[in-house]
């Protein structure tokens, strides 16, 4: 369980990012954070991923404040995939995936590469292994980026707008795919794509101007959002 208490964040220019956000995210199922652009959802995700430090409030992974976790442990607990993915252009997809486990977890190179290959196979994209990021499509890159994150076996994986670069078909593929992967890793996805949210999750919240405007069942949130002229 991820417990968020009174999280507030203000940008250096004074803009409010988050205002006293409190909630609990159960880690059994995929969870989505909905909201318009500028609602604070990406800010929220970055606070969870420790990329920005909130001025007040705390995030607990079970009983442990993530502030106090050492970097290595934290990154194995919470992974994050940015909207623009940032695959490393000077390495093949296989190297992109295996570099972290080899260098950080000190795992054997051959075993790691084998695991990476198996994962690509399971995800239906084994042919990408020896390709460079510039040689693959947007949908493939999205999968490759998630696969790279999964290689570190985090308990939670944060996804920032995973469907923003995808067409309808690849969006549906991704949704199917996340359902399959849900066993070992909980996904927390920030999105404004309601159909996608409905497909991958049952529960979520909706942020508006840095505050939680509604929470609970996705369908209810969605109807609430559409009535609010979203």
């Amino acid at each position: 369980m991820l417990k968020i208490e009174n999280l507030s964040y203000k940008y250096p220019d004074g803009t409010v990012g988050l205002k006293k956000v409190s909630m609990e995210i159960p880690l059994e199922r995929t969870f989505v954070i909905l909201g318009e652009s500028g609602s604070g959802k990406t800010t929220f995700l970055r606070c969870l991923g420790k990329f920005i430090i909130p001025q007040s409030g705390s995030v607990f992974y079970y009983d442990e404040d993530i502030k106090n976790m050492d970097n290595k442990k934290f990154r194995q607990t919470i992974g994050i995939i940015f909207q623009r993915l940032y695959l490393f252009p000077h390495m093949t997809i296989l190297k992109n995936m295996s570099l972290g486990p080899i260098k950080i977890l000190k795992r054997d190179r051959k075993e790691t590469e084998k695991e990476a290959y198996n994962m690509l196979e399971r995800l239906g994209i084994p042919e990408l292994a020896e390709n460079y990021p510039s040689q693959i499509s947007g949908g493939q890159a999205q999968r490759a980026a998630i696969a790279r994150g999964l290689m570190m076996h985090p308990k939670i994986m944060l996804l920032d707008e995973p469907t923003s670069a995808l067409d309808l078909k690849t969006t549906n593929d991704l949704a199917e795919w996340l359902k399959e992967l849900n066993e070992k890793t909980t996904f927390i996805a920030v999105t404004h794509d309601i159909p996608f949210a409905k497909k991958v999750a049952q529960h979520g919240i909706c942020l508006n101007k840095g505050e939680i405007s509604s929470s609970g069942d996705i369908k209810k949130i969605a109807s609430h959002m559409s009535s609010a002229n979203y």
């Binding site: 992974g79 950080i104 994150g149 570190m152």
Partner: peptide, 24 residues
């Protein structure tokens, strides 16, 4: 973003520089 992505995976500062930033 290359730095952020490397940080998200869990590389330390030296690894971020030597494995990700400098080669590029």
């Amino acid at each position: 973003g290359q730095k952020y992505a490397a940080k998200a995976i869990g590389f330390n500062k030296w690894q971020i520089f030597s494995l990700v930033i400098w080669p590029q």
